[in-house]
């Protein structure tokens, strides 16, 4: 494995008596596509939320790009270069597609109230750059022609793409996708696979939660399997597929 981008060490999280995550440790290498799979309720999204600062983990620590990640405020995770999408799409519905992506530039730009009021040369230049970059990203994910439509009026697949474009606008080093193929048909899933491969090729590391086994096995360099909040396996897809504990977790009970 190449250089390590993210190292999670002993991350735990419980809600009341339910242990959603127990002592989860994993490392993601720079430039990898890393899959996180497991049955429903295994703690995948909880792990995402801990990583991106929406939850404060009870124990353990994250190291990101060689420095500890102080994951107590979500906007700091984005500043450090971790972007995410949501399992149930969370777009800004009443803003146009291009505006959604423009908001994504927020964390990499700096115009304040006075810039907005006086519209000095720097602010105008920054605003133009934001608009240009947003248009590029819409083109990149393939929905340039829907730029001025309200986000909520886009088709399901386009909304997924828009969410990815918005996440990319924050210039992430690590892009976390939470079930991006959920609810997609075969064609849409295939298009998504091509998009994710393109993003990887352009140098962004990807952490992927997904139920579509074909997609995960086809895309991921390595896969970790969570079950009842514990990591039960981590390896290349071909090995994970044959692991008895994984099969047991998915099918329930032992398989003779």
């Amino acid at each position: 494995m190449a250089e390590v981008l993210l190292r999670a060490a002993g991350v735990g999280k419980h809600f009341g008596g339910v242990k959603a995550l127990r002592d989860v440790s994993l490392t993601i290498g720079l430039g990898e596509v890393y899959g996180l799979i497991g049955p429903n309720g295994a703690g995948k999204t909880t792990f995402f939320n801990c990583l991106t600062g929406l939850y404060v983990p009870d124990g353990g620590a994250f190291d990101f790009a060689g420095r500890p990640l102080k994951a107590d405020a979500p906007h700091q995770a984005a500043e450090r270069g971790i972007a995410r999408t949501f399992q149930n799409i969370r777009l800004f519905g009443n803003m146009s597609a291009v505006e959604n992506v423009m908001v994504g530039r927020h964390v990499r730009t700096g115009a304040g109230v006075f810039g907005a009021m006086f519209r000095d040369a720097r602010t105008r230049a920054e605003e133009a750059a934001i608009r240009r970059r947003a248009a590029e990203l819409l083109h990149y994910v393939g929905i340039a022609d829907r730029a001025d439509d309200l986000a909520k009026n886009l088709s399901y697949g386009d909304q997924r793409r828009l969410e990815i474009a918005r996440a990319l606008a924050t210039e992430p080093q690590l892009l976390c996708l939470d079930e991006p193929a959920a609810g997609m048909n075969a064609t849409e899933t295939e298009e998504l696979r091509l998009l994710i491969e393109g993003i990887r090729r352009d140098g962004t590391t990807i952490l992927l939660i997904e139920h579509d086994v074909k997609l995960v096995m086809g895309l991921c360099d390595r896969v970790a399997v969570l079950d009842y909040g514990e990591k039960i396996c981590e390896d290349v897809p071909a090995v994970v597929q044959k692991d008895s504990r994984v099969i047991e977790a998915y099918l329930g009970g032992s398989v003779a």
Binding site: T52, L54, A77, A78, F86, R90, F92, V103, H106
Partner: peptide, 17 residues
Amino acid sequence: RAWQAIREDEIAAKAIG
């Protein structure tokens, strides 16, 4: 735009920084 984003979906607004 940031104000509008917060009005629309605060969690998503946080998540993009």
